[in-house]
Amino acid sequence: MKRFFAALALAALAIAPVFSQAPDVSKILRELDDMGDFSGRDFSAVYTIVSQKPGEKETVTQARMFRRDGRKQFVLLIVMPEVNKGQGYLREDDNVWFYDSGSRKFSHSSIKENIQNSEAKNSDLTKRSLLDDYGVAATTEGTIGKYPVWVIDLKAKNTEVSYERMKLHVRKDQNMILKEEDFSVSGRLMRTTLFPKYADVGGKLIPSQILIIDELNPGEKSQLTLTEQSVAALPDSVFTKAFLEKVNK
């Protein structure tokens, strides 16, 4: 579950736009920020996360996400594993409710708190701003697979971000993040995230396959797959406790 939320947080932020080839880094970052913002539109998708740990059985979580950034709302509905089916999270402003379909009860927490036991904070599921949180330390050129990329080295401006340093590998011909490397304060590589597949959803490029590699624990990785992505308008009733109860009837 821990990795599930970490992966989900990543997926939420890696939404990238089509962009120019100019190495104007601030502009690239602004575009990445803007395109990750779904204000004014709804977004929904099915997230499947498969996590691997050496010597252990793969763990699978599938959830359906409904987002309405303009009103700071989201609903996350667990679809798999079967035993957790129907559990869900509802966010409204700074409130987050967890719904347990087993007991048909809700519990409340605030957006500032960690999502239960996971490393992700509730606030990770909301948008982040590269431009506000990070300053550009260096920009170099590189290649990933067949794609030439800008390697943008970012340094945190505040202590609220999860990682002190981040290296973004952004495709030159289109503004898409292909790879993100996260570093600790001491400069140690903590996590590598690859974004090899995107989907064009209503003119926005949204990652559809993500591979997260835990660099601290060799062999631990997670694959996140997004399907059924949509920016179609959602009914208001989705972002209510009643919706979580209703789909479980």
Partner: peptide, 28 residues
């Protein structure tokens, strides 16, 4: 992983329009 076309055109569902409440009732 980065050898082919990165944009998966067939992946996304209907991306515009409006989703009706009734269509979500049976999602589980």
């Amino acid at each position: 992983l980065f050898g082919g076309d990165m944009i998966d055109s067939g992946a996304a569902a209907a991306s515009t329009g409006r989703i009706r409440e009734s269509s979500l009732e049976g999602i589980l």
